[in-house]
Nucleic acid binder design. Structure first.
Lengths: 344, 344
DNA sequence: ACATTAAATGAAAACGTTTGCATTACTATT
DNA sequence: AATAGTAATGCAAACGTTTTCATTTAATGT
């Protein structure tokens, strides 16, 4: 029987539990990690000992074995608004279902910062990393490859991506919404996108929209090409400026639902009716977009599905299925026509 | 000079770095943790070695010493909407500024789940924990006390809380907004709150509102007391039902800005003008509340300030200042009168 | 009941750091 | 130039697990 001189310590460890249960630490460890390898009756005793001693296992000590840290890292541009929240929640729910805990960090759209965050995540020996999109610094990609960390990119599908990805095709989303707007008769079209530097999602969408418009012989004058940050307030301000200075288009295609919301508010504040006076579209289909008034015509990018699938892909990699790398899952995009647009 | 037979290993460790730099592992370690204790020139050499070897320190191995894990845990009800995002972003920014990484988990308003999450966070040996509000299970409080984990509760101030807290007084917020509504002449008032079970913030707000109304001889009939979940869609549905079946109040006081938004949309959808036909108020002042149209009259709870201050309080605890526990910081609440309300 | 095989458990080494103590290398003082 | 004092570094033990291998215990077939 395992024995040990009792030391006085504030925090119980696996050895205390072992003594309490009359087994060796090895057995306690096994009862956590390979329950079927220990006799049911022994496990019972161990569980009782755990309760009695108030033991909480130390994942750091576990992680040090070079095996499981039980964590995955998530790096997103921001938590500060609705953009990623549906996605994150879904991702988080799924990985937790599999016993992992999530380390989250934000870089505020600064890709150098993103690299630093990745390093810090790796210091914590996360078993996998999820990122947004495909614009990442050279250093980031190098590090990922060098350490061969399981990794998944969420939010946009890319045919020839180096790393696994789950998402829709953003250029297709752009084309689809542009097509929709043209189909319902608009030709006086403004567009509003964020700065597309270091942001492939926005860039692809914007390109998709503009190319489709051009192909259909619709010119968008400079003053109808608005750049705005990803916030309702910024979008609203930018929209107000446009409305004030320039002629009013019959439709505005925006880079996402948050920007669309800002444009709708600006229009309403100006006394315009959406969609009677002006149609506005978003991209993304966040959970509130169907609930607002008017509800927002947008392109469904299925954030929840992306989050869940991405978690699954990552989990597969973590569990050793490295052959299929990179796995690329295309999530279909689809225009959701709602109240914020109207045909003319 | 430190020496070691070179083993073949995929992942560089501190020993490899030490060899490379011609020093002992101890010195490398010190150059991370107590930089001033190592000669500048030595540090230079070590940094070079780190770069050359591609070393990434192992926080798990560090955490095992019983010292710093470099992480703090955050447990929130949900990430899925705007409610906590401003708060979380501020909290996250601040702790990161101090070199910590954040582990985030959500319990979906289930306090038993919260306890399980806390355990899992402690398994990862977070150095501190931040929670929302004061409604937590007995087990949660016990565990916190037993392990004497640095902890801070965010979002509501409580005079005699067991644990440190940073936030506004939710009952005062309720009273303040009720007072405002009465002051501008309303007496036909509906209220809309979420289920207040296991949610002290909502409960306090609701009590504050209802008590103030009662004190001022305003009765709220049952059909004007709406219960709704914290989502725009739910709120909108509940509002629509109320508008359909019952007489229309001149004002609705809601439990937070998300619910307010839902009511505003429902009213607009019904053809009502906010605020001319009906006034609507929220509580919280999320970042989009000032940007919407109409902008939302609400009670400013300063989520960013709360997040930042709470992080600071927690960091203080972590850095050994345990005497001042519990520290309670009251963040002033203040009615922000905006476009969604009008006097009659 | 006995031998054979399988299942359960224990002993001890390993994981990658940090840190107290011992030692060595500098600095300043006389 | 010798010495005391301090700063920088190295040595080795610890931290709390997991896992391989060896051993004991139980189960099976005859």
């Amino acid at each position: 029987m395992y024995n040990k001189i009792m030391k006085h310590k504030t925090n119980v460890d696996i050895i205390d539990v072992a003594i309490h249960a009359g087994v060796s630490p090895a057995t306690v460890s096994r009862s956590f990690n390979h329950p079927k390898k220990v006799l049911a009756s022994t496990r019972k005793r161990i569980e009782k000992a755990i309760l009695q001693t108030g033991y909480i296992r130390n994942r750091a000590a576990q992680a040090i074995q070079g095996k499981r840290s039980g964590t995955v890292g998530l790096i997103v541009p921001t938590l500060d608004n609705a953009i990623f929240s549906n996605l994150i929640q879904a991702f988080s729910d799924e990985i937790r279902k599999h016993g992992f805990t999530m380390l989250v960090t934000t870089h505020g759209y600064d890709l150098n910062d993103e690299y630093a965050l990745l390093r810090s995540l790796l210091e914590h020996r996360v078993e996998g990393v999820a990122l947004i999109g495909h614009d990442h610094s050279k250093d980031t990609y190098n590090l990922l490859e060098r350490r061969s960390v399981p990794v998944v990119s969420m939010w946009s599908y890319k045919r020839n991506s180096k790393i696994s990805c789950v998402g829709g095709e953003n250029d297709q989303a752009g084309r689809a919404i542009a097509k929709h707007i043209i189909n319902i008769g608009h030709s006086q079209i403004a567009v509003a996108f964020p700065n597309v530097k270091e942001n492939d999602r926005a860039r692809d969408r914007k390109n998709g929209v503009l190319k489709y418009l051009t192909e259909n012989f619709i010119e968008v004058p400079d003053y109808w090409q608005v750049e705005t940050a990803y916030s309702v307030q910024d979008a609203r301000d930018s929209a107000a400026k446009m409305f004030e200075k320039y002629p009013c288009p019959t439709a505005v295609i925006t880079g996402n639902d948050v920007i669309a919301q800002g444009f709708i508010y600006a229009a309403q504040a100006k006394g315009l009716n959406v969609p009677n006076d002006i149609s506005v579209t978003g991209i993304g289909d966040f959970s509130s977009s169907a609930s607002s008034f008017p509800s927002i015509t947008t392109v469904r990018m299925r954030p929840k599905k992306v989050g869940t699938k991405a978690a699954l892909v990552l989990l597969d990699r973590i569990n050793g299925d490295r052959e299929a790398d990179p796995t690329r899952i295309k999530v279909s995009v689809e225009v959701k026509s709602r109240e914020s647009t109207k045909s003319i």
